[in-house]
């Protein structure tokens, strides 16, 4: 099983330029979404038939801190004129939405928050997600973004 990760503190803009370069929406994403976007690029680049709309692949994102890093960014700007875009990223599932938009995944997307990185529990939840009658595989990611410079980020694909 192919698995990818992005070390904490990596320069994400540089990584984006190296891997993609032509998806300007990247720059409005929060760190959590940037990490999810880049992890899936690392997983999927060169895959045959990529970007063809499909309903049979789920995107399941796990973490301990959810959108907390961006919640803090938003709370700091609340008193002034916060941008609507910044608020939307204060939800842990937006990263799954960004991955879906990029890859045209029209299947199940969900975000789970767990007390810690518990591979066994994650595997059970992924297996349970395969009860969906159409889902055949899933992009699974543990992206725990503690701040804009400190995170654990890894992703892999699981098949039913």
């Amino acid at each position: 099983m192919k698995a990818v990760s992005i070390p904490s503190g990596t320069n994400l803009t540089a990584l984006y330029r190296e891997l993609v370069g032509d998806y300007p929406k990247f720059f409005k994403m929060d760190t959590l979404s940037k990490l999810g976007f880049l992890l899936t690029e690392m997983l999927l680049q060169g895959t045959e038939g990529r970007f063809t709309p499909r309903e049979d692949r789920a995107v399941l994102v796990f973490s301990r801190n959810g959108s907390l890093a961006n919640d803090i960014n938003y709370a700091k700007r609340m008193e002034d004129f916060p941008s609507p875009a910044l608020f939307v990223y204060t939800l842990p599932n937006i990263v799954a939405g960004e991955i879906s938009i990029r890859n045209k995944y029209e299947g199940e997307t969900s975000a789970y928050v767990l007390e810690n990185y518990d591979r066994q529990l994650i595997e059970s939840i992924v297996r349970e997600a395969f009860q969906d009658r159409i889902t055949r595989d899933a992009i699974v990611a543990w992206i725990d973004c503690r701040s804009d410079s400190e995170w654990t980020a890894q992703a892999w694909i699981e098949t039913k």
Partner: peptide, 27 residues
């Protein structure tokens, strides 16, 4: 600490749940 995981653990603990709590935060 406002983490959803910590909240879930406290609620589960108060209810006497022995399994690991799961938070679903899907907007």
């Amino acid at each position: 600490d406002i983490s959803l995981a910590a909240s879930a653990a406290r609620i589960a603990g108060a209810l006497g749940i022995k399994t690991k709590p799961i938070v679903v935060s899907n907007a």
